[in-house]
Design a protein around this nucleic acid. Structure first.
Lengths: 241, 241
DNA sequence: ACGGTTCAATAACACAGGTTAGCCTTGGCC
DNA sequence: GGCCAAGGCTAACCTGTGTTATTGAACCGT
C-alpha cells in the first residue's frame, strides 16, 4: 500500500471494517498507479477491454457523446471512486471516461474482480455497495435534469459534490476545491455555458454559494438545501452481511 | 414453475443457457405471484424492507417525487424485469415503484438473493448482468433528457422500448402494445403533458410513428433512428464466465 | 340513458433557457 | 514585454417548452 489508495479505503471503511487481509487484497487487486494528464481520455465509449479503474488523485468525468457533437456528463468520479465496473459484465464500455485534472489511477482486471467475489464476498459486497451508491447518484442526476430548473439543479449538484467530497475528507463543512469550469458544468447539468454563468451569478447575488478560483464556498447551507430540495444522504446506513 | 416467469427465463436465456437446476433455483427464489391493481404503489421511497420484485405480467414504473409535487419516472419495468435490487444493498429503497396496469409480481427476499451468489454464482452473474443493462438504460435516459430535444428524446424512448419488448417477445419488429398515457410519458421524458402531445403529433405528421389505442407503430424505422441518434443494443454481447 | 371520469387535442400566451457576439482578465510562453 | 489561449462575464435576441384554459371522444358503472 503506497498511501494513495487511502481514499478508497477510507470510503469503504466508513461502512464496513476491513480486516488486514481484506486491505491487502484490495491493494493487490489494483495495478501500480498510472499517471494521467489533464484532458486525456482513459476509456473510449465502445472500447472492448474489460477493466475498471480506481481514482487515487484528481478528478475525472464519465460521459457520452452525441452524433451532433453534444456531450452529456454522467458523473464526476473523485478520489476513491471506481469507474467502469459495468464494463466488466457488459463486454464493452458504454461511456467514455477522461481525466479533468492531472490524475493518478489504477486499473483493475476483470478476472481478478471476479475472483474477489468468490474469495472475499464481504469485500465484494462492500464494493458493490459503493457502486450502488453511484447508481443512486445517477438516478438523482436524472431527476435533477428532468424535473428541476437550472438553479435548483445547480444548487443540488454542488451540495451533492460537497457531501461526496466530505466522505473522503476533501471538503470542509461548506467548501471545497473544485476544478470544474463552466463548460464542464454545462455538460453535466444539461445547460448551455452561458446559462450556467447566469445561474452562478444569481446564486452568488443571493448569497447562497460562490465558485471562484476553483473553490466552491457554500455560504448559506440552509438556503441551498431549501432551494434544491436536497435531502442528506442517509449516512448511517450500513451494509449488513 | 407456473409459466408466468417465462419472461425472465426467456430474457436471461438469451445470454446464458440455464441448467435445469438453475431454472429450479430461479423459480424457488421467488414468492408465489402477487396480483397488483393498476395504480397501486408497491414500494414507497424511503421504505425499509429489503425486497426486490420481479414483474411477470403488466407494466410498472419506478420514480421519484419532488417536494413541489413533480415526479420523474426513472424507468418502466416490463415483464421479466427486476426492480429494487439496489435496495438489497442499501437498506432502504431510494425510489418508489408502482403498477401502471393490473400486474403480477413476485417478491425476492434479500437473504435468498445473497445465498444465490454463493451457491450459483453463474446465475448470480446473469442476474447482475441484467441489472447492469438496466443501469445502462438509466444512463441513456439521462443523456436523452440532458442533451436531446423533445422530439429526439421521445423517438429515442420509443425505439428503446421497442427493443426491450422484443427481447421478451412482447413486440413485433416495429410495433407493440403500450399502456402509457401522455401524462406518464411526460413524467418520464421530463416534459409537460401538452408538449408530449405536440411532439407525438409532429412525429405522426412526419410519418415516423403513431401512438393510438395503446398501440405504438413505428412506421419509419430508419427515419426514427436517424432522428433519435439511436444505436442498437449490441445484442450479441455475451456474458462470459 | 345518464353523469362521471379519464385521456387526447388545440389555441393563446409566457418564460426559461439557448444562441450569437463580444469584451475582459489571467496566466503561460517566446 | 508582448502575444496567445483559456476561461469568465455580459447583453440582446430568439425559440423550445411550459402554462392556463377549453373542448371533445371514449369508456364506465348504475
Amino acid at each position: 500500500m503506497t498511501g494513495h489508495e487511502n481514499y478508497l479505503v477510507r470510503k469503504i471503511s466508513t461502512f464496513v471494517d476491513l480486516s488486514v487481509h481484506e486491505l491487502k487484497y484490495l491493494s493487490d487487486l489494483q495495478s501500480s498507479p498510472i499517471r494521467v494528464k489533464k484532458g486525456r481520455e482513459i476509456v473510449h465509449e465502445g472500447q472492448a477491454g474489460q477493466s475498471a479503474y480506481i481514482i487515487h488523485e484528481g478528478w475525472a468525468c464519465s460521459f457520452k457523446l452525441l452524433p451532433d457533437g453534444g456531450r452529456q456528463i454522467i458523473t464526476f468520479p473523485i478520489p476513491g471512486d471506481c469507474v467502469g465496473l459495468r464494463s466488466i459484465l457488459l463486454r464493452t464500455s458504454d461511456h467514455s471516461f477522461s481525466a479533468l485534472t492531472d490524475s493518478l489511477v489504477s486499473r483493475i482486471q476483470a478476472a481478478r474482480m471476479k475472483d474477489l467475489f468468490n474469495e472475499l464476498p464481504r469485500l465484494g459486497a462492500a464494493i458493490l455497495w459503493a457502486a450502488s451508491r453511484d447508481e443512486a447518484m445517477v438516478v438523482e442526476h436524472l431527476v435533477s435534469i428532468g424535473r428541476r430548473n437550472a438553479m435548483e439543479r445547480t444548487a443540488h449538484f454542488l451540495l451533492e459534490l460537497n457531501d461526496r467530497l466530505q466522505l473522503v475528507g476533501l471538503a470542509s463543512n461548506h467548501s471545497f476545491a473544485c476544478p470544474l469550469n463552466q463548460y464542464v458544468l454545462a455538460d453535466a447539468l444539461g445547460l448551455s455555458t452561458i446559462h450556467v454563468n447566469r445561474v452562478l451569478r444569481l446564486l452568488r447575488e443571493r448569497g447562497l454559494v460562490t465558485l471562484k478560483n476553483q473553490m466552491v464556498v457554500i455560504q448559506d447551507m440552509a438556503g441551498m438545501k431549501a432551494l434544491a430540495g436536497y435531502v442528506n444522504r442517509d449516512d448511517d446506513e450500513q451494509i449488513e452481511q
